[in-house]
Simulated scan of single mutants.
Amino acid sequence: MKRRPKLLRIFNRDRPLTRSRDRSLNVIRKGSSHSHWRDPYHLLLTVSWPKFIAIISLYYVVANALFALAYLAGGDCIENAHPGSFSDAFFFSVQTMASIGYGAMYPRTYYANVVVSIEALAGLMGLAMATGLMFARFSRPTARVLFSRVAAIAPHNGVPTLMFRAANERHNQILSAEMRVSLLRDEVTAEGQAMRRFYDMKLLRSKTPIFALTWTIMHPIDEMSPLYGLTAESLAETNLDLVVTLTGLDETVSQTIHARHNFVAQDIRWNMRFVDIFSRMPEGKLAIDYTHFHDVTPV
């Protein structure tokens, strides 16, 4: 019989998990010189839309303010602008950077023409980069997949089975959808070394040709399962993390999309079963009640 590695019990409930509740990596990296600001393209692609708009707006204001100071340094170099007026220089910079050119204010000296030339080039480059970032953010394929907040363990065909739900929130289909579940947990090797191990979990059905509505994912807890032999108490004491990944082809944009979710030990309900959310309407149509999508009931 294959000897199972010793599990590392975690009695400190305050220990951080590999992934936080918002699915981001909850790890402090020491000795790494990487900074988000050293990779601005990736930062601008991954931040939320409000932060993205705020960063672009801040860059726009700061750039125009710097050029306004450059115009003021040249003295009275803008026609029809009040001498020493920062607001006139700022709005002249806005007109120049955006290539508006109303004609009320225009450069009157050689110095101003040089600054205008530099700003026009900067404006063209900034517009190209902002347009490319906006297109990249809009064209990036995304999935709207709803995962159940909890997972449940209940008998299925006489075998204890881990189950959770997934649903496609869009009114389209995900083709050739594939679900993968991996278990992460702390273990101690025979030499006494603590380590974090990955286990691929076998599913009763890991692929579906069409994912349009809901999908109940099942993992039988048999002798080959990494959960075999665990009880509700031992499961709660283990720093366990179930990582779920879904990949498929969005039929609307014909691009590969992916979604991910994770469950920790506290999310697993023992001897519970998901509530049935399917019903038949009087006219014969099938109805799905998503208000009970996350609900479980005792076996």
Rank of each mutant, 00 (worst) to 15 (best):
V27K: 09
L17C: 08
R269L: 05
T238D: 14
A167T: 13
G229A: 08
L162E: 01
A154G: 15
T189F: 13
G158K: 02
P298F: 02
G103V: 07
R9S: 10
E187A: 05
L184I: 05
R205A: 09
L44P: 06
A63S: 03
E223K: 13
R170Y: 13
Y71Q: 01
F198P: 12
G103N: 13
G126A: 09
H171R: 14
N64E: 03
L183E: 04
V159D: 05
M201V: 03
S117F: 13
V47C: 01
L146M: 05
S148K: 01
R13Y: 03
L121M: 10
D222E: 04
V145I: 10
E233F: 07
S234R: 07
T208V: 00
A128M: 03
A120V: 10
S33L: 11
P220H: 04
R260S: 11
S206E: 04
P83T: 08
H36P: 09
D250P: 03
W270E: 00
S35E: 12
W49A: 12
H258P: 12
G229I: 01
F198C: 15
R38G: 11
A81H: 00
C77I: 02
P282A: 06
S99V: 15
S57N: 15
A232C: 08
R23I: 10
R144V: 12
F211L: 00
R273E: 10
F263V: 02
V296T: 02
H82G: 15
W49Y: 12
F138G: 07
Q95G: 15
S182G: 13
C77W: 03
F91L: 07
L184T: 08
A65E: 06
I268C: 01
L17F: 09
P5A: 08
A63E: 11
A70E: 02
Y71W: 08
R196E: 04
R280E: 11
A136M: 05
H34R: 04
M195I: 14
L127V: 05
R21E: 14
W215H: 02
G103Y: 03
E187H: 00
V116D: 14
Y59H: 11
M105Y: 06
K30Q: 15
A152Q: 06
D295R: 13
V299H: 09
S48G: 08
P220L: 01
T245Q: 11
R144D: 09
F11Y: 10
R137M: 00
G192R: 06
F67Y: 11
S99M: 14
V264L: 06
L43N: 08
V47Y: 05
A54F: 09
D289H: 03
W49G: 13
T231E: 00
I100C: 14
K202F: 10
F164I: 02
S87P: 08
L227G: 00
S206P: 06
V275I: 05
F91A: 05
A136E: 01
I221Q: 04
Q266W: 00
L127P: 05
F52H: 09
I53H: 05
L235P: 02
E191V: 09
N113K: 12
